[in-house]
């Protein structure tokens, strides 16, 4: 028996909006510690890892570990039927072949339930080691989204370079080239507006912009984003989900031959 009650149901709606274009089908894993997902895109270049910790739910009952295969397009269709202020409860029986999403309006005068069929999904689970990254950049998520969007009008790939001077995003294409440099700044008024660079050694990596643009669909989940980079390792693009968890995207770098 599984019953997860999320008061801020809009978070789940936003999570689905953030990942449904990257991943078609995925297994949601439910355990004592939380509700999680790890899935790769069809080309296995990008991976999304979601964690919603159990203590972030108003009510969290998970009698035994459960993996539920869901089509994210269909799940998104159902969650779109929830109001932004609705409380969402996810319910499933052990060994059942469906999951139920229950939506309650804040004033409790409207209750809906949507049942969705589950599916069997064979997916590879990757072991992602805890790593000390060479450079970690924290910046406003809207700024990162803007840079990715702007640069993708010029080129297909971006070089992200972190040095003591700041973080530089560079691209080039048929019509020309572009560089955007963000320097470390400290905002007294609002920590969300800060760009903070922690660097052990300079790092420069090249990525396909279309994946980064896809990741920025998570911008609505958090005012800040963190980019963690090490030489010749996938970048981690992390959006914290208020008080409850995170969504992390991993993207393999393009490597010079």
């Amino acid at each position: 028996m599984l019953e997860l009650r999320l008061v801020q149901g809009s978070l789940l709606k936003k999570v689905l909006d953030a990942i449904k274009d990257l991943v078609t089908d995925a297994n949601f894993d439910c355990s004592e510690s939380g509700f999680s997902l790890q899935a790769m895109d069809s080309s296995h270049v990008a991976l999304v890892a979601l964690l919603l910790r159990s203590d972030g739910f108003e009510h969290y009952r998970c009698d035994r570990n459960l993996s539920m295969g869901m089509n994210l397009t269909n799940m998104s269709k159902m969650l779109k039927c929830a109001g932004n202020d609705d409380i969402i409860t996810i319910k499933a029986d052990d060994g059942g072949d469906s999951v139920t999403f229950m939506f309650e309006s804040p004033s409790q005068d409207k209750v809906s339930d949507f049942e969705m069929k589950l599916m069997d999904i064979d997916s590879e689970h990757l072991g992602i080691p805890e790593t000390e990254y060479h450079a970690i950049v924290k910046m406003p998520s809207a700024e990162f989204a803007r840079i990715c969007r702007d640069l993708s009008t010029i080129g297909d790939t971006v070089v992200i370079s972190v040095s003591k001077d700041g973080v530089k995003f560079s691209t080039s294409g048929d019509i020309g080239s572009a560089n955007v440099v963000c320097r470390q700044n400290n905002s007294v008024d609002n920590k969300d507006n800060e760009t903070v660079i922690e660097m052990n050694e300079p790092v420069s990596l090249t990525f396909a912009l279309r994946y980064l643009n896809s990741f920025t669909k998570a911008t609505t989940l958090s005012n800040t984003v963190t980019l963690s980079m090490s030489k010749e390792l996938p970048v981690v693009v992390e959006y914290k989900i208020a008080e409850i968890g995170h969504i992390r995207f991993y993207l393999a770098p393009k490597i010079e031959d």
């Binding site: 790769m40 296995h44 270049v45 689970h125 072991g127 790939t157 393009k254």
Partner: peptide, 14 residues
């Protein structure tokens, strides 16, 4: 002159 590896090249399959 770039090649794109899959994530399995970096992280072990469990």
């Amino acid at each position: 002159p770039f090649r794109q590896e899959g994530l399995e090249q970096f992280f072990p399959i469990q």
